[in-house]
Computed example of a mutant assay.
Amino acid sequence: MKTLSIADADLAWDADLTVLRGVTVEARPGQILAVTGTSGAGKTTLLSAMAGLLTPARGEVLVDGERLTNRDQAVKLGVVLIPQDNGLAAILTAAENISVAVIATGGTAAEARRRTAEALEPLGLSGQANQLIEELSGGQQQRTAIARGLALQGDILLADEITSELDAANRQRVMELLRAEAARGAAVVFATHDPEAAAACDRELHLGDGEAIWVRN
């Protein structure tokens, strides 16, 4: 499995506005790293850089020593992102959203069917597999996005506020699934504003006032 690291990086979407300064962080195989902070603190910005969607203004993102420069490269290196806005295609079913992603990353049609079923079942979505995304509730859509991320079986899993629309039982279920991902050797990064969820992670990096401060490392 792979390690993702950022060393002394400045992250900015606009040249005139740096969101985070001097960030140094390492996502390690077999561990869950919580990234915490209030809304607007830069959690999504940090995960975007880790996912290859944002090039640091200073510093670099490395996956096992290889510099990350774009999203396509990140996908090839096994970096999976579950975005906050779910990123699902509304005109496809829950199962189709997952299967298409598996095939796009090199899986066969048979593998896509198997991984889709295996990902939907623990999230309580087997009964919604053939429903269109637009027919699902917000919580069901969020769980479908999580299932898609899990089905990709990446070396590095980035999860951005993925429990925000879930009830307590489903939040607990998702935390158990993230723990299972770490147990198989993935490096998991979980951005959350939930202190209880963060406490269940192995390490915690808190973002505030443009800086990243280790709470537990």
Rank of each mutant, 00 (worst) to 15 (best):
R148V: 03
P122W: 08
I98H: 00
C201N: 04
E121C: 01
N170T: 10
E176M: 14
P122Y: 10
A109G: 07
M175G: 11
E134W: 15
L157M: 12
G127V: 04
E165T: 15
A109Q: 15
E121V: 09
L136E: 14
V100L: 08
G106M: 03
R171I: 11
R114F: 13
Q131Y: 14
Q131G: 04
R115C: 05
P83G: 00
V174P: 01
A94V: 10
P195V: 07
G106R: 03
V174C: 03
E176R: 10
L157Q: 03
A95C: 05
R113K: 15
L77C: 09
A112C: 04
R173M: 08
E134N: 12
L125F: 06
G124W: 05
T93N: 00
I91K: 15
S164A: 15
D85S: 07
A151D: 07
A94Y: 11
G124D: 06
V79L: 08
L77E: 11
V100Q: 13
P83N: 05
Q142S: 06
D160L: 04
L166W: 06
L125K: 09
C201V: 04
A186F: 07
A186W: 04
R115D: 10
I82L: 10
E181D: 02
E135A: 13
R115E: 09
G149M: 00
A182I: 05
Q141D: 11
G138F: 07
A145P: 01
I156Q: 08
A104T: 07
A104D: 13
